[in-house]
Write a protein that binds this DNA or RNA. Sequence first.
DNA 1: GTGAAAGCGCTAACAC
DNA 2: GTGTTAGCGCTTTCAC
Lengths: 313, 313
Amino acid sequence: MAGVSRSTASRVIAGYGAASATARDRVVAAAEQLGYAPDPAARALATGAGVRLVVAVAGATPTVLNDPYVDRVVRAAAEVCAHQEVGVALEWLPMHAPVRLRRLAEDRGVRGVLMVNTTELILESVPAALEGRAVSIGIGSRTVPSFDVDNGGAARTIVGHLHGSGRRRIAMISGPEWQPCTRRLVTAYREVMRAAGLPVRLVPGDFTAPGGQAAMLTILERWPDTDAVFASSDAMALGVLAALRRRGIDVPGDIAVAGFDDVPFAALSAPALTTASHPVEQIATAAARAVLDRVRVPPATAYPSELILRESA
Amino acid sequence: MAGVSRSTASRVIAGYGAASATARDRVVAAAEQLGYAPDPAARALATGAGVRLVVAVAGATPTVLNDPYVDRVVRAAAEVCAHQEVGVALEWLPMHAPVRLRRLAEDRGVRGVLMVNTTELILESVPAALEGRAVSIGIGSRTVPSFDVDNGGAARTIVGHLHGSGRRRIAMISGPEWQPCTRRLVTAYREVMRAAGLPVRLVPGDFTAPGGQAAMLTILERWPDTDAVFASSDAMALGVLAALRRRGIDVPGDIAVAGFDDVPFAALSAPALTTASHPVEQIATAAARAVLDRVRVPPATAYPSELILRESA
DNA sequence: GTGAAAGCGCTAACAC
DNA sequence: GTGTTAGCGCTTTCAC
C-alpha cells in the first residue's frame, strides 16, 4: 500500500535501519490508515526475542507467591509490559534449582526474568544465557543488576528514631534468616544498638501477622521491660499491635511499634503505624523496563526509603 | 532423533491427532532427552492463538489499576498462565471505548481478554472476534461469560445478620453508581430493609478508606441514631472504623460495622471486621483457565460468599 | 536507500 | 498412522 517492499516497511516500523524520509512517511501513513500493528509472536519468532517476562519469586515453598508484595510487583510489571506487547508470567523459584533457571534461559518464549527475594546461592546459578535479561528486586550479582530499597538505611533511620524518642529497650522482629534483606535489616539494627550501647533483643519472624503476634508474645516473655519494637514488615507490626491490644498494653505509651513497608492499611490501624516507605511499584516498574528495553543498567540501584511517622512510634 | 517426521512429532507434542503408541513413545523419549519445549511464539504464529492474556479493568481513569483487588486478579491469572507459556498484560479499559476493544480483538498477540468491573455498555461493544476468548469477572452478557461472587446473596446475609442481631437503623455505604456490582448490593440491601419495614439510609462511597471515613461522617450527621453500617468494601469499612474511633463511638457497642471482601487486614483491625468472603483468587483462576482452555463455560458462574463473623458486628 | 530471498519454529491440510 | 508441503507475519542478510 505504501508502494515499498516488505523490508523497507519493516525497517520503518521497527525504527532502525536505513529508509528515506519519503519512504518513511508513506509507510507511517499507510500503517496509520490500516491500523497496522506488528504481530508480537511473528516478531518474537523472527528475532528470537521472547514474549514473556517471568517474575520468579524465590522461596522454600510455592506459597511465597501468595503475598500482597508479589501481587504489587506482578501488577506493576504487567502494566509496563502491556505497552510492549509482552505478557507477565509468575513462577515460584525453589531455593536451589539451577534446572529451573536453565529451563527459563533456554525457553525461547522468555524475554527476561525478574527475580524477587533471591539469594546469593540462586544468583550464582543464573545461566550465562540469561545475562542482560535477568534483573533482581533485592540483592544482585555481577551478572544480575539489583533494584532495591535502601534497607539498611531505612532500618537505621527507624531504630534511630525509636532511640531518639527516648526508647532504650528496643526489640526487633526479623524476617526469615535466609533472606538477604533480613540480614541487612538485622545488621543495621545491631549497629545502631551497639553504637548506643544498648542490648540486642532479636526474635525471628516470618513476615506474617500471626507470626508478628507470636513474636511479640515471645518478646514480652523474654524481656518484659521492652519499650519499643521494630518489626521488619508491616504485616508483622500489625500482628504486634493486635497482641499488645489483647494484653492491654498501650501503644505508643508503654511500647512503641514501628513497621516496615508502608502498606496501605498501615495508615488505618489503631494506632496508625509508624513505618518506612517501600516504593515497590516504582522499583518493579524500573526493573521490568530494564529487562524489556535491554539497556545497560548500573549493577545496583537503591531506592530511598522514607520514615513515615504516624501514631505508633 | 525419534526417527519420525516433524508432523508426527508435532502431533504427539501437541497432544492431539493420530499417532501410534510406538511413535508416541519415541517422540516423548526424545523430547525428554533433548529437554525440548515448543516455542510459544512459533506455535502462536502458526496457530494464530496469541501469547498474551490481557486483564482489562474498566473505570473512569487509569487509576482503577491501582487497586489491591486488581493485583490479586493479575497475580492469579499470571500463575495460571505460567503453566501454559502465556503471559499476562494489564490494561485500563475506559468506560466507553469500543476502539480499545476492537484493537484487542484484532491484535493477533492477544489470546484472550479477562474483563474486570465491566459494565453493560462495555459488554455491548465487545467485538464478535472476541467471542469465546473474553470472560468477565463481574457481570456478563450473551457473548461474555460471567465469573462472579454472589453479591446479592452476600449482601442479604450481611444485612440480615445486622437485623437479626437487633439493629434497626442500618445505613449502607455503596460503591460508585455506575458499577453493576454496586447496584446488586444496593438492591439486596433495599429488599431486606423493606421486608423488615425499616428505613433506607444510603450514602455513596468510592471503595477507598478515606471515602468510607467521609461517608461515615455524612451518616452521623444525617442520621445520628444509626446503629449499624454496612460498607460495600472492606477498605471503606476500615475507614468507617477509623472515623468512629476518632469520634469515640464504640464498635460494636454503639454502632455495628460490616464490610465486604474479607481482605487480609480485615482480621487485624480493631475491632476485627465482620465481613463477607470474596474468593477473588478462585474466581480469577477459573476465569483465566476458561479463556486459556477455550472450553465452553456456562454464561454465569456464581461463587458463594461466606459471612465472616468477627468483632465489629 | 531499497528490494529479493531466506528463514525463525511450529502447525495443519492433504495425500499417501 | 505417517510424511510432504505450504505457510503463519515478521526480520535480516546481501546484492543491487
